[in-house]
């Protein structure tokens, strides 16, 4: 029983990471039709920024931890917004080229991170409570899992409220459904593009700082390896659907944990299998609108 609880909560923690990446991917794809390969780099840069701050301010206090999470969000958002303004926007409506540009950015930014921070993992530490465990029905759960889950829930809530109650949120929701009609109402939908990139980048940046604490280290490849699973989550959840991404993130990560434990480390295969099954049975994903 305690194993099941441990796997479940650890899975949800990992799912929280997936969601922090997938939420931005899904919004960006939904609104703009761009599959953003540079999203992992937003995460990685956020992680490094958070680490730099934490190591300067003394990693072992909550204030510095919260500050590094916030810095990760800001850095991710700025990087993402610049990506949209400088690279994506020039290729308006040319989706393949837009994808290619993000591929190029992913390659060159990871190389740049290698150059700045080296190719070896940088070990991080946080507040001592984060490294400890809490007993839940007999299972010792590493505390950082709770922080991850809490952060993902807050981000989800924040995005939902933003989408529901702001003008940009309204434009984004409408644009995901029918972008050209939004412009036909006299709205410059491209400004919303920058906004979704910034939101996605912020979520990824938060994810970066938390991923560093989950894995215990930062490296230039941390974003790229999460990105692949985030892609899978995005497709399973239904491209463009935020709640789909949330459900799929939890589902994929929990399944992965259980398969890794009970089926001899086959978690990644089970996830790929799940993707194949979902796409064949329901090509639009769990909550995708159009096939």
């Amino acid at each position: 029983m305690s194993t099941v609880i441990l796997l479940l909560i650890t899975g949800l923690g990992l799912g929280a990471l997936y969601f922090l990446v997938a939420s931005g991917l899904s919004l960006i794809y939904g609104l703009m039709g761009v599959l953003n390969f540079a999203h992992g780099s937003f995460l990685t840069l956020g992680a490094f920024a958070g680490w730099e701050l934490a190591r300067r301010t003394g990693a072992d206090n909550w204030l510095s931890f919260v500050a590094s999470v916030l810095l990760g969000a800001v850095v991710g958002a700025v990087f993402a917004a610049l990506t949209e303004l400088l690279l994506i926007r020039r290729l308006y409506e040319r989706h393949i080229e837009q994808v290619l540009v993000t591929v190029g950015l992913a390659l060159s930014s990871v190389a740049l991170f290698d150059g700045i921070w080296g190719t070896d993992p940088v070990y991080v530490s946080g507040p001592s409570w984060m490294g400890g465990t809490t007993d839940v029905f007999g299972a010792s759960i590493p505390n950082n899992r709770f922080v991850l889950i809490l952060a993902a829930v807050l981000v989800l809530l924040g995005i939902v409220l933003f989408l529901k109650y702001t003008r940009f949120g309204l434009i984004i929701r409408a644009g995901v459904e029918n972008r050209s009609m939004v412009t036909a109402l006299g709205i410059d939908v491209r400004r919303a593009f920058t906004v979704v990139f910034a939101i996605g980048g912020a979520a990824a940046g938060i994810g970066g700082v938390l991923a560093a604490s989950y894995y215990g280290y930062v490296s230039s490849s941390i974003g790229g390896s999460l990105l692949i699973f985030a892609f899978i989550v995005t497709v399973i959840g239904g491209l463009g659907s935020l709640s789909g991404a949330a459900i799929a993130a939890a589902l994929v990560a929990v399944l992965q944990q259980f398969a890794n434990f009970y089926l001899g480390g086959t978690g990644d295969f089970v996830v790929v299998l799940l993707l194949a099954v979902v796409l064949l049975v329901r090509p639009s994903g769990l909550l995708g609108s159009k096939a």
């Binding site: 309204l170 929701r173 459904e177 009609m181 939004v182 109402l185």
Partner: peptide, 16 residues
């Protein structure tokens, strides 16, 4: 018509 089906009537009008 191209109304935004996942937005409410009020939101469709507010957007415009």
């Amino acid at each position: 018509r191209e109304v935004f089906s996942k937005l409410t009537v009020a939101e469709n009008l507010r957007l415009a």
